[in-house]
């Protein structure tokens, strides 16, 4: 057993998939959240620019 512990012999087949699944799920949560936030932020900016354009209908 080395200190870095990367030789897991017979258990590697369980440990690495678990790490990979964790990484994948966490990465999905991060990207989905960020993309969602960015999408709606862009949308708001676009709509506000539209409204601020001269000649556009004033906000009620």
């Amino acid at each position: 057993m080395s200190m870095t512990g990367l030789d897991y012999a017979k258990y590697a087949i369980f440990i690495w998939p678990a790490v990979a699944v964790t990484a994948a799920v966490l990465a999905w949560m991060v990207t989905d959240s960020l993309l969602r936030a960015r999408y709606w932020q862009k949308k708001v900016q676009a709509l506000e620019a539209e409204r601020a354009r001269p000649g556009a209908k004033p906000a009620p």
Partner: peptide, 10 residues
Amino acid sequence: LVRIRAEVWR
């Protein structure tokens, strides 16, 4: 927090 921000923007 990021997702709540997204909801507020939405």
